[in-house]
């Protein structure tokens, strides 16, 4: 699935990483606990989270993730957006709740292998 499709499906605003919207991602994981995210290594993932602090971006960096989706209309700080930009991570913000966001992405073929 392309990052652009994720943004469309979740009616999400693209906060940074517009140049990455055509990139393909293979799988996603949804969690507010970063240690749980860190417990499973997987390539090119998407992180769906309702947590907003700089460790979300660092966790995505450690996992080589390409995209973070903030649910429940959570908004990252300018510092977080800057950190994401520097590290080539696209940030999306959606009003969807976690369950709904994960359900939509899963239904449209974004798997969860390893998450």
């Amino acid at each position: 699935m392309k990052i652009r499709e994720i943004a469309t499906l979740l009616d999400a605003e693209v906060l940074c990483g517009e140049q990455m919207l055509e990139e393909e991602v293979q799988n996603a994981c949804g969690s507010d606990m970063m240690s749980d995210v860190l417990a499973y290594v997987k390539d090119q993932g998407v992180l769906v989270t309702g947590l907003v602090n700089s460790q979300v971006i660092r966790t995505a960096m450690m996992m080589d993730m390409h995209c973070v989706v903030f649910v429940r209309n959570k908004r990252p700080s300018p510092e977080m957006v800057e950190l994401a930009k520097e590290n080539h991570i696209a940030l999306l913000a959606s009003e969807s709740r976690m369950y709904e966001a994960c359900g939509k992405l899963y239904q449209h073929g974004l798997g969860s292998e390893g998450c």
Partner: peptide, 16 residues
């Protein structure tokens, strides 16, 4: 925990 850590996965992840 509210910051996304403290799930009791730190040391196990480090070992993993």
């Amino acid at each position: 925990r509210a910051l996304g850590f403290g799930a009791g996965m730190g040391l196990p992840n480090m070992k993993r």
